[in-house]
């Protein structure tokens, strides 16, 4: 059964929610059932943010996750909060330029990627989330890169479309890391 339950967590302003939304959108374009549930609250930039994304072949029971098959983490507190959600053999991806802590579990597959550094080296810090999504695609096959590109066109306003080639480069860099 094709079932991916993903939690993405970090600070507000890191593109946590937009990464989740893009994965859901791309999953829809791949013809799958999808759901996206964001944390919401008074914090905007700098507060904590997380979202839960499900991509499945079957109708999705709950969009609210108590466990997940993959976890992307962009700060230390989020690792502490969500590590226990990962199922056995689940995929953990951490932005190693921001997350110094290591997971305590050894029954999961952990990948580190200095996404924020890679993004600022490439000249656009705002794309750090995209590198991590690239790694997620590589390790799980949750969506196709082609659908992700279409999702970018679908989600971003026209004035931002000129950025899409750079974002796809970031995605590929993440996949190849």
């Amino acid at each position: 059964m094709f079932l991916h339950e993903v939690i993405i967590a970090g600070f507000g302003g890191q593109g946590i929610l937009s990464a989740g939304r893009l994965i859901a959108y791309a999953g829809m374009l791949d013809g799958r059932e999808v759901s996206f549930f964001p944390s919401y609250g008074p914090e905007m930039r700098g507060g904590t943010a997380n979202c839960m994304v499900v991509v499945s072949d079957e109708p999705i029971a709950s969009p609210v996750l108590n466990s997940c098959t993959a976890l992307i983490v962009m700060n230390n507190p989020s690792l502490e909060k969500f590590e226990s959600y990962l199922k056995k053999d689940g995929v953990l991806i951490t932005d190693s330029s921001l997350v110094q802590q290591k997971p305590v579990r050894n029954d999961i597959r952990h990948f580190e990627l200095p996404a924020t550094l890679m993004a600022s080296d490439a000249g656009n810090k705002a794309f750090s989330n995209i590198y991590l999504v690239g790694k997620l695609i590589k390790e799980t096959g949750i969506i196709t890169p082609e659908s992700f590109e279409k999702a970018l066109y679908g989600v971003l306003s026209k004035s931002k479309h000129y950025l899409i080639p750079q974002e796809m480069e970031a995605l590929r860099a993440g996949m190849e890391y």
């Binding site: 999808v34 919401y40 969009p63």
Partner: peptide, 10 residues
Amino acid sequence: DGVLGQMMEV
């Protein structure tokens, strides 16, 4: 409820 209002689905 807040889940239904905030979540995205197809």
